[in-house]
Simulated scan of single mutants.
Amino acid sequence: MLKKIAPLLLLFLVAACVEDVDFEQAENISISPIVESSLIFFDFPASEFSEPTGTAIVVVGDELELDVFNDEFLRDNLIKAEFFFEVTNSIDRNFRADIIMYDANDQITYAFAVNIMPDGNNEVVTTHTEVFEDDLLEQLKNTVRMELVLSMFPSPSGIPLDENSIGNIKMRSKATLFFQIDNE
Rank of each mutant, 00 (worst) to 15 (best):
M117H: 09
L10I: 14
I91G: 04
N77T: 12
F153D: 08
S173T: 10
S32H: 13
S32K: 12
D20T: 04
V58W: 03
Q107E: 06
F153R: 05
I100M: 02
E163N: 13
A46N: 05
H128P: 03
F178G: 09
L78I: 12
N168V: 10
E27V: 01
T126Y: 01
D106E: 12
A104C: 01
E184D: 14
F95P: 04
D67Y: 06
L136R: 12
F73Q: 03
E63T: 07
A113S: 15
D98W: 00
V14C: 04
F23E: 12
F41T: 06
D135R: 05
L11T: 14
V114E: 08
E82V: 14
E24P: 01
S32A: 10
M146Y: 01
M152V: 07
L161T: 01
I34C: 08
F132S: 10
G54L: 04
V21W: 10
S155H: 08
T126R: 08
L8N: 03
L64K: 14
T176D: 10
F12K: 03
V131T: 15
A15R: 04
N164W: 04
F69G: 11
K174Y: 04
L148D: 07
L10C: 02
N70V: 06
S30G: 06
S157C: 06
M146V: 15
G54P: 03
V114G: 01
E65P: 03
I116M: 09
R172F: 02
N183Q: 07
I40S: 11
V21H: 08
T127M: 13
E163S: 15
D182H: 09
V131H: 07
L148C: 11
G61L: 09
M146E: 12
D162V: 02
K3R: 06
G54S: 05
V131Y: 09
N70I: 05
F85P: 01
E19F: 06
V124P: 00
T53K: 11
N89A: 12
S38F: 04
L74G: 02
D71R: 09
C17K: 09
T129F: 09
F41D: 11
A16L: 09
I169V: 10
F112L: 05
Y110N: 10
P7H: 04
N89L: 10
F73W: 11
K4A: 02
